[in-house]
Nucleic acid binder design. Structure first.
Lengths: 212, 212
DNA sequence: CTATGTTTTTCTGTATACAATTATACTCAA
DNA sequence: TTGAGTATAATTGTATACAGAAAAACATAG
């Protein structure tokens, strides 16, 4: 389908972003350009461009002698969930009002895959399909601003969600909550979509923070 | 004080960011690297690094044949204010809880300058001091996440605020609202700071959107 | 005049060279 | 051994060269 060649700079960005957000590179680690050149096998130009993007995402800071990894602290995690509690319900409300037949099918497909991998107990795939569900939700809202605000925040909690979704019971609940959200959107019930989504974000944080 | 030399890439980024957010470059405009090299008098390397950062801020998109300026539409404006209405009050609440003597002095200084320029009817300087007030507020909250979320959103409404603050009456109200917020923070009255700030953002949008 | 095929130009993506700065290692005297 | 001073390494910032792709300009046949 999508045979558009991706530039090395884009590949490097995604690679490093994933490694930082997964926790492979940890807070305080120093990434030097030459080191990245060696392990990734490309010249400094695409490396530097990727670093400028990571910098703008606040995943690294320039120290003048290497890029220092910031990563996501538990304080960051708490604040991200505070913000998502405020915004994600609104995005779902907007999505419920606007969702087309096709949008709903996309959500349905993501949810069915979650249920499939839930049955297989494949928590890694559950997480990826869970990501897709949220991303589609942001997209359907029709707002670039909501999309561009929520997507990076959601990406940044991956390391913690990974652990949380290894709990069979939480994975179960999470998928069930998605089902409720989807049903509300199918009915174009904006208020229900908002309420279910806000509650879903709250529940996710409760489990991640170990407070339930 | 701050004689730290700023790289060309940083200068180019700030230059282009300002030009896009001020409306000098408009939605749809195409920026080619060579053209930017000529008008800014630097090589492609720092230009490209600046473009990667603008891309990450969603101010431009790569078309494969030049960078297309996105700018901020009126729909974006509405969504930005919806989000700020949700978040900015929370940031103020956090700031009221945490503000040190020095923090408060910083806010006070920014506010006094607003009042000074208000008397001089210098709307451009009022706007800049207004920006500073909000930025300090985000900073005092102590949350990188709130800071990094709110600051870019606030930057993106400059073009519209510029017009709004040319209204003497709105400039007056705005500065008065800041005064209320500051007083609440001085008293460490978190609930009042939250309420005044949320109302301030609402009022700002009402005026910008011409709905009052 | 128009359509088509070809050449030329433009533009990006990447690698590399070089300068400037800063950290590191090393040498030698006390 | 320690300390100062110096040479050396490492690292970033910037400019530039070159390849490849895409668009634009052009020319030619009908």
């Amino acid at each position: 389908m999508d045979h558009k060649t991706v530039s090395l700079a884009d590949q490097v960005f995604e690679h490093l972003e994933t490694d930082i957000l997964s926790g492979k590179y940890q807070r305080g680690d120093i990434l030097t350009e030459n080191h990245l050149c060696e392990i990734l096998g490309v010249s400094r130009t695409p490396i530097r461009e990727a670093l400028r993007r990571l910098q703008q995402e606040h995943l690294i800071v320039e120290t003048g002698k290497g890029s220092q990894v910031l990563g996501i602290s538990e304080d960051d995690l708490r604040d991200i969930y505070i913000i998502r509690e405020q915004l994600e319900g609104l995005a779902a409300k907007m999505s419920a009002e606007k969702a087309s037949e096709e949008d709903i099918n996309e959500l349905k497909s993501a949810l069915e895959l979650q249920e499939f991998y839930l049955a297989k107990q494949n928590s890694e795939q559950i997480r990826l399909m869970d990501n897709r569900f949220h991303e589609i939700l942001y997209k359907i809202s029709g707002s670039h601003v909501f999309y561009n605000t929520l997507l990076p925040l959601h990406k940044k909690v991956q390391k913690y969600r990974k652990v949380s979704l290894q709990s069979q019971s939480r994975a179960n609940e999470s998928v069930a909550e998605h089902r409720e959200i989807l049903n509300a959107i199918i009915k174009h019930d904006a208020a229900a979509a908002e309420a279910f989504t806000a509650q879903h974000v709250k529940n996710a944080y409760k489990h991640i923070a170990g407070k339930d």
